[in-house]
């Protein structure tokens, strides 16, 4: 299967993407240069918290078709305009204080293998970078992490009809942790392996 496609809507390519580019076969494409043809031959699509959601929504049918053809999509960020029909609206969790944002691991999964919940909750002592809200998953999704106090899902994966894989992370872009020294750095490369079909457990 082909490589992964990253839609860039920032001046600089994020460091985590740039570093993984060669090893994981990531193609970096300016978002406004994207056409559905760019999905042909790609194994997966990486969507950042910085995408132009209105532009992306014009290509919703192409994204749905991509998933239906068994490919993978990773969605990051507290989105306003969902990129796919399966996504419920994003809702903030808690009252802005730290405790409701403390995370715990839910179902074991290759994406979170070897990852400690504390390393997701805290980034040098600060809580909230990983996630501050939720998008309610479909009934047959697998929840990877959740907020301990409320039990609301944070990260989850879903196997679409047709075999497509969807990863939803309603916080800051996961590749932002790829260069850190904690176990949180494992998530992004493990996500890329899962998107490319290199791991076969659960969803």
């Amino acid at each position: 299967m082909g490589g992964l496609l990253f839609l860039k809507n920032t001046v600089a390519t994020p460091k985590g993407i740039a570093q993984a580019r060669a090893e994981h076969g990531i193609r970096v494409l300016d978002q406004y240069a994207f056409t559905p043809r760019d999905l042909e031959g790609a194994a997966g699509l990486l969507l950042s918290q910085h995408v132009d959601e209105r532009h992306l929504s014009e290509h919703r049918a192409a994204l749905e078709g991509f998933l239906a053809r068994g490919r993978a999509i990773a969605i990051n960020g507290p989105f306003v305009l969902p990129a796919l029909g399966v996504l419920a609206p994003y809702e903030p969790v808690g009252d802005g204080s730290a405790e409701p944002w403390a995370l715990e691991l839910a179902s074991p999964h290759p994406i979170t293998e070897g990852v400690r919940a504390e390393d997701l909750t805290f980034r040098r002592g600060v809580v909230g970078f990983w996630g501050r809200g939720t998008s309610k998953p479909p009934r047959d999704a697998v929840v990877l992490t959740r907020y301990g106090r409320s039990g609301s899902p944070a990260d989850w994966v879903w196997r679409a009809p047709g075999g497509g894989r969807l990863f939803v992370h309603p916080g800051n872009d996961v590749w932002g942790w790829a260069t850190r020294s904690t176990s949180a750095a494992r998530v992004f490369p493990q996500l890329l392996g899962w998107m490319r079909g290199e791991t076969e457990v659960g969803a």
Binding site: N9, Q49, H50, V51, D52, E53, R54, H55, G77, P78, F79, V80, L81, Y90
Partner: peptide, 10 residues
């Protein structure tokens, strides 16, 4: 200007 990002929309 509206860049279309979620934080602009919100």
């Amino acid at each position: 200007v509206d860049g279309g990002m979620a934080y602009h929309a919100r």
